[in-house]
């Protein structure tokens, strides 16, 4: 039995998310007394692949077929399931990001493997195999028993601490396969990518504004604070609906679900649907004129006051620290 982890790459590079996944897989492997095999699909050089070894992968199966350059989740699930069977994997770990959400359910059906999705902690128990899973948009957590022989876990991003394993040895195995083009059914017509912006889902710090920011013209102290902190910017739903901020910044139940170390909510009331997207943040700061706003119940630090006065002072305070 082994623990298999699928590590996605971005133009041949891994990011923190990849190392979190391997750290988590190592935690599970330790509980089960087994080792971690990582699967990589796409062109990634050996030095980059070896980085996965620093977090405990003892074997890396590298699939470098050119035809798998765009995410065709049918093809990806077939490759990963083939490797899982070959490696005799009892547990398969995948990110709960967009790609992971596309692959995991297909893999589940192929392998008849139950899925615990969006986990953020190590399994509670291996026998019966029980995971701690977010349900009801963060208003409840479930102890979910996975009854199948093979278990699939999708890990919530930013929810598991990196754990380096110095001195771990790691081998790379190239896995070649023939991809029948008739099976690749997703044809990409156009790609639009933002560059130079910290991705909301990757960010350790997020500064977010709500309707309390009053107008799209008031955002400059907020974005300045974000850039000084190396943070991504976010917003509540009405703000993106009004077109004050781009749609990809909207957090909450119907937007992005994030778990940064620090979430600064400015002029956001803290409706349950908003909290559903941010309640896994390690620290929440609330800045709001209304002392009774529900956001203060979720926050660890709060300032009751006018954002327009407070934001510039925060900007000055951060500058003074630099």
């Amino acid at each position: 039995m082994s623990v298999l982890v699928y590590t996605e790459n971005w133009d041949g590079k891994f990011k923190k998310l990849s190392f979190e996944l391997v750290s988590y897989a190592s935690g599970v492997a330790k509980m089960a007394g087994t080792s971690v095999t990582a699967v990589s699909i796409g062109k990634v050089d050996d030095t980059e692949l070896k980085k996965l070894g620093n977090y405990g992968a003892s074997k890396i199966v590298a699939v470098t077929n050119e035809k798998l350059s765009t995410l065709d989740n049918q093809a990806y699930a077939s490759v990963i399931s083939e490797i899982a069977l070959k490696e005799n994997s009892g547990v398969i770990i995948i990110s709960n990001n967009n790609a992971g959400k596309a692959i995991a359910p297909r893999l589940s059906v192929r392998l008849k493997a139950g899925v615990g999705s969006g986990v953020s902690r190590l399994p509670l128990n291996l026998n019966p195999f029980t995971v701690y899973k977010r349900t009801y948009s963060g208003n409840a957590f479930a102890h979910l028993v996975i009854k199948s022989d093979i278990k699939i876990l999708t890990l919530a991003q930013n929810s598991f601490d990196l754990a380096e394993t110095p001195g771990n040895s790691c081998m790379i195995e190239n896995f070649s396969l023939t991809v029948d083009e008739a099976h690749l059914k997703t044809v990409v017509k156009d790609v639009q990518k933002q560059t130079g912006k910290i991705l909301l889902t990757d960010a350790d710090i997020v500064v977010s504004g709500g309707r309390g920011m009053k107008s799209p013209d008031n955002w400059s102290p907020l974005t300045e604070l974000a850039s000084l902190l190396g943070a991504a910017t976010a917003c509540s739903r009405p703000v993106s609906d009004e077109g004050w901020r781009p749609h990809d910044e909207h957090t909450g139940q119907t937007g992005k679900i994030i778990a940064p170390n620090l979430y600064i909510a400015v002029g956001i009331s803290g409706a349950t649907q908003h909290l559903a997207g941010i309640s896994s943040s390690k620290y929440i700061v609330a800045i709001n004129t209304d002392k009774d706003a529900p956001i203060f119940e979720a926050a660890q630090y709060g300032i009751v006051g006018d954002a327009m006065k407070i934001l510039p002072k925060l900007v000055e305070a951060v500058k003074a620290k630099k």
Partner: peptide, 22 residues
């Protein structure tokens, strides 16, 4: 079915908010 919820729990309560002078 491949999975089953055996028990639910509430999220762990968060520490009370610490207020900072505006």
């Amino acid at each position: 079915s491949l999975t089953q919820v055996v028990v639910f729990e509430k999220p762990a309560p968060r520490a009370a908010c610490k207020y900072i002078d505006a």
